[in-house]
């Protein structure tokens, strides 16, 4: 476990920058995490993706399938990869305050 400090605020994160305590998450934290993912400005589309992932996570305890994410937000696949350069797993899930997803990510 380690810590990162973004704009003066310190968070416990894992070694890859995923939030250790998902309950600490809020919009401000999301904005700060976004800066570590190369997202300087959270557009409405960024928020739509992040909120959908967040809500799904709180309900199911894991990240949603990309299909569901695209269908629920109405944002197409390629746009999601543009919004979050590290992709939906390491990028969007991290900003949404999820722990690192399982699998090859």
């Amino acid at each position: 476990m380690s810590e990162i400090t973004i704009q003066g605020r310190t968070f416990a994160v894992d070694e890859e920058g995923f939030l250790q305590k998902p309950e600490l998450w809020n919009d401000e934290v999301a904005k700060l995490l976004a800066t570590t993912e190369g997202v300087t400005e959270m557009s409405p589309e960024h928020w739509a993706v992040v909120r959908m992932i967040r809500e799904y996570y709180l309900e199911h305890g894991n990240a949603p399938m990309i299909r569901l994410l695209c269908q629920r937000t109405g944002i197409n696949l390629r746009t999601i990869f543009k919004l979050f350069p590290a992709g939906p797993a390491k990028g969007a899930c991290k900003v949404a305050g999820l722990p690192k997803p399982e699998g090859c990510v």
């Binding site: 990240a63 399938m65 990309i66 299909r67 696949l77 390629r78 992709g87 939906p88 797993a89 997803p101 699998g103 090859c104 990510v105």
Partner: peptide, 11 residues
Amino acid sequence: VNPREVKFFPL
């Protein structure tokens, strides 16, 4: 396939 293709990276 690799499950990540189904879950996150379907391209």
